[in-house]
Nucleic acid binder design. Sequence first.
DNA 1: CGCCGTATTGAGCGCTCTCAACGAGGGTGG
DNA 2: CCACCCTCGTTGAGAGCGCTCAATACGGCG
Lengths: 238, 238
Amino acid sequence: MNALILNKIETNLAGFNLNHGLRLDLLPPKEKNEIEEQAKYFKLSKKTVLYNEGETPKGMYAVVKGKIKISQLNADGTEQILFILSEGELFGYRNILNNQRHVLTATALENCEVLFLEKEYFLKIVKDSQHFSNLLLESVGHEFTALVNRINIFAQKNIKERLALFLLLLNQVYKTPDQISDISEIKLNRGDLASFIGTSIENLVRTIKVFKENNYIHTNGKSIYINDVDALLNISGL
Amino acid sequence: MNALILNKIETNLAGFNLNHGLRLDLLPPKEKNEIEEQAKYFKLSKKTVLYNEGETPKGMYAVVKGKIKISQLNADGTEQILFILSEGELFGYRNILNNQRHVLTATALENCEVLFLEKEYFLKIVKDSQHFSNLLLESVGHEFTALVNRINIFAQKNIKERLALFLLLLNQVYKTPDQISDISEIKLNRGDLASFIGTSIENLVRTIKVFKENNYIHTNGKSIYINDVDALLNISGL
DNA sequence: CGCCGTATTGAGCGCTCTCAACGAGGGTGG
DNA sequence: CCACCCTCGTTGAGAGCGCTCAATACGGCG
């Protein structure tokens, strides 16, 4: 039963999240070891900025523990969150490859632990390992799909539909390794969740309220838990 | 004066369109010739579908003449246009690289002429030419930026702001080689324009009306012409 | 206990969507 | 050549959604 639910979510959301992006734990052992040996280990306190849009990329990062928020700041000060990364995911490397500056900002949502691999080592591995560069190419393809689908969502779906979809996405992001149930504790503050789904905090709270009244979800403090996967899938229109 | 206006548009919109994507005319002569020699030439009548989402990629295309629309169909039947490609632009090749099926649909908006390069030749050129594969990588980076910015627009901006932005974008897309003025004839029907900016036809028409009343643009039949670039830049919030 | 940041609720306005009707223009057949 | 039809564009009206401002509640921390 659990497997069924998880499978259903994964099947439907495959095109939207980056779970199939580049992950440290999915690299071939040789490259994984090389990265882990060369990389530096950092602890980050909540709200620490790893890099800002406009800066020159310094290297590649891997999330060891915690959640990293990848976002963009608008001219009017509003923030748009693009991704929330969890354990194992690699990031910050794209613009090394094409010699551009960062387009996005990376911030620790919680107290985090990360690995950091200097640009030179990263480029060396790309150059030496055909396997790794193929994975990069594949990852880029998944990202493209995810971004295109995301555009579709924002252009065509209303807030209720978007919240349903993003809660399902976040249920996967917030899954912990030791978690038995399929239902995760989504612990994201209202401001960040609003920036993720592209609405105001008030609107978000009201929509959460409606979902609670319909028993699609429940909350505990600021944490959100999904009750009814089918209902959310249905609302999201997938 | 002309140069100033064009420059202003280009500077502000650089992150949003794919004019800096992969273009046939910007390839090194060797690769350009190779492609032109191996490719087949096709004429397409208006509304012809080159490929549908879900199909296996067959090769790479280049626009010789006309406009190609790259879009995605939603579950509820609505269409989201992602790009409108014009002369010189290359497309249809991404999912060759990562062995996936097409995520998007390509359709001729007008009577078009295209070059088509079989998958095998494309892969051969990628393999043989370091220069070409570097260009691919760079192009992918530009696309990523464009898509991320697009998400931001749809998540955060209202229809007036989006229309202003997309008209500026389309002014560049519809620029013809022999065009003297900076102002292009944007000849796109209302349905497609609505699918591009993500709204209903009625809403689009009303917003166009407001822009006309304010003398930001004028129309002739269904064609749209920009009068006031600064006003549109201002509205779009860039 | 009081403070501060965050979450929630209320109210009102403006934006956006939808349904419906009307108009304009091009193409076709009588 | 005209009448008709079909498609596309435009306009109107009303309901509902989403935004903003403002007030209130909650919870952790000094």
